[in-house]
Design a protein around this nucleic acid. Structure first.
Lengths: 183, 183
DNA sequence: CACAACTTTCAGTAATTTCTGAAAGTATAG
DNA sequence: CTATACTTTCAGAAATTACTGAAAGTTGTG
């Protein structure tokens, strides 16, 4: 894998962004490299291309595995493991959303739920609980919603996204229809 | 602001999560504290409650300001600045989404666009550009979509979220209607 | 103007995260 | 079983990020 300037800028940028998306620089770079590489790469290929240690590559791949973003393959007569990005770009986006939900939302939701089970001991806590309730409900809504969006086919999701804020009109439409039925 | 155990666990957890949501521990804690506090707090109140230095509080508030998540107020006959969380929970969620889009998506999109302007120098780069194109289009779709969702009223958004995957059926419905019209 | 009451900045330090490379582990071939 | 060709682990080092507190800055008051 030779890093042309084009490929370098893609890979490095993904590295920078990696940390914002929930993994570290090297993990981001490894993934970027695998995504834009047509052939599967060995751990050494990756380390050489990125200029990082073999150990670091191993840890990075382990992390990507836990995100279910890589696939291990083999070549005949070669003991080495070869790695490639798993699934389509849609799958990738889904994975990232899902993992982040697990890591960001779920623990928060359960903490909030715990707090709401307690009795407020004074007006200050009562006020706090009200706010916490709001946050809880909002997060729960978002969680459920994103989960159900993930069950939609990429095709439907695309339609929905293309619709943009036009979805508001569709909702009005639906309201009218269901109302008419109710009459 | 006395930190009861309930309030402590909320504030500390928000601190932990803060880093995942794009800001550091102290910033997360300060914001949590302001959200569940009915009255506005001075910078010293905050520092005392959280056990962090005055300087750190100042930096944290500056950061929250840049996210437009806090509001500064004053009390008669008191020179101190007092701080409170700005807007509703919905506003907060919007702010966070928007800020993150600005910080995570926009720079990536512009980098991808730049790469796509170049000619591929070889088949390897051609393959890379195909992948990059896919990623670009996906991110652009998501960006536009989330932007347009933000223009929807909280009320409509709520309806949409409640609908969950049922939105698929509504889309079918819309398809049928628009088709009928076309006939 | 000088002083008081505050806030902000920032150099140095502390805490945290990431990375390296050597050692340990694993699997296959002979 | 031993040698070889690999992968993983992990203690310590390096890099990065966050925090402190003293000094500088700001604003209002007498």
């Amino acid at each position: 894998m030779q890093m042309t300037p084009m490929i370098e800028s893609f890979v490095f940028h993904f590295g920078e962004m990696g940390s914002r998306w929930g993994f570290n620089r090297t993990v981001g770079q490894i993934y970027a490299l695998l995504v834009i590489s047509e052939s599967a790469l060995s751990a050494n290929d990756i380390g050489d291309a990125l200029g990082v240690s073999r150990g670091n590559v191993s840890m990075g791949l382990k992390e990507l595995h836990s995100w279910q973003l890589v696939q291990t393959t083999h070549k005949a007569g070669d003991r080495k493991d070869y790695y490639r990005a798993k699934g389509t770009i849609w799958d990738m986006a889904n994975r990232v959303f899902e993992e982040r939900r697990k890591r960001e939302m779920d623990p928060t939701l359960s903490m909030l739920r715990d707090i709401l089970l307690d009795e407020a001991a004074n007006p200050q806590e009562a006020y706090a609980q009200e706010r916490i309730h709001e946050i809880h409900d909002l997060l729960e809504n978002i969680t459920h919603w994103t989960q159900s969006l993930q069950t939609l086919s990429p095709d439907k999701l695309n339609t929905l996204m293309k619709l943009g804020s036009g979805v508001g009109k569709v909702l009005d439409l639906k309201d009218k229809l269901t109302q008419r039925k109710a009459e």
